[in-house]
Nucleic acid binder design. Structure first.
Lengths: 162, 162
DNA sequence: ATGACTGCAAACCTTTTGCATAGCG
DNA sequence: CGCTATGCAAAAGGTTTGCAGTCAT
């Protein structure tokens, strides 16, 4: 599992330590739905690792971000979401503001245009965030029957390059 | 001043009230640098309107957002920033992660591609956020002399459509 | 052994809210 | 007048931190 290797490299380089908590959290993080909240991960782990505290989840997720395993995202609901980024193609997000569904997409043309914009401003891009907010087809349809968007957050993987 | 008209229309429609605080905050908000923090606006107003409380600033900025005068943005530093959006073309942001400079840009080609992506996913877009993070030309140059990015946030208006 | 990691609870910090008062319509 | 807005202070809510004990190296 390459993710563990990356983490261990970072740990060795910074005189940190491999602990069972960190290993367990990494495993859970990899298994987890994309765009997990610290709280969600915490609850996920309550069954098999009831002793792990929420503070440790936060500390460990920050560690993952530092070593490039994860990225923190802010979709505007006040909960930071963490996303595995190692060995994953960059992608952007369609966010349904009603049912909270998150659809991922890739579009190389947009990325190229971003580079063009950056170059025009003599800017060196290290990362970017593109989020499109609106209604998914389901919610657009059932818009009149306005159900409260209390569904869980799903992530639908999908590629598209046109 | 059209902004005031829009605000008054919203106020009338919702049985709200025009107060001197709201008028003063609107004026300050229009004069303010783009991407103001509630706190920044609060401090800006301390001189001429010392009695206005921070809570009112927040409540009023939220009011501005509701009537379409402003938009809230989250650039990832934990402070919500508010941006006047009325009578302003939509634009996106280049954010220098070192000196915190924010450069605005417009790019219709990217917007068109976004629409295309949305259509492919049967998604109805209401808004979007595109932020490119990296180093501006100044910081890329003086990268070795790593000065702490404590500068104020500047906004440089700029258009570009290629 | 040394120094990092953990759980717990307290602290933090930005934003929101409750309440009594002030003020618009 | 009735009902909204305000200021203040307290609450909220997510995230971080201090501390004493635990554990990896």
């Amino acid at each position: 599992m390459k993710e563990e290797a990356l983490l261990q490299e970072h740990i060795a380089k910074h005189h940190l330590k491999v602990t069972k908590e960190r290993s367990a959290i990494l495993r859970a993080f990899i298994e987890a739905e994309r765009h997990v909240t610290a709280e969600e991960l915490y609850r996920m782990m309550r069954e098999k690792h009831a002793s792990i505290g929420l503070a440790t989840i936060y500390r460990t997720l920050n560690l993952f971000c530092e070593c490039g395993l994860a990225e923190q995202r802010q979709f505007g609901d006040g909960h930071a979401r963490y996303e595995l980024t190692y060995n994953v193609n960059h992608h952007d997000h369609l966010v349904c503001t009603q049912c909270k569904k998150i659809i991922e997409f890739e579009n190389m043309d947009i990325e190229k245009l971003q580079e063009k914009v950056a170059k025009a401003h003599r800017f060196t891009i290290y990362s970017h965030k593109l989020e499109l907010y609106g209604l998914c087809s389901d919610c657009a349809k059932s818009n009149s029957s306005l159900r409260k968007g209390k569904d869980e957050l799903h992530a639908v993987r999908s590629s598209r390059s046109e």
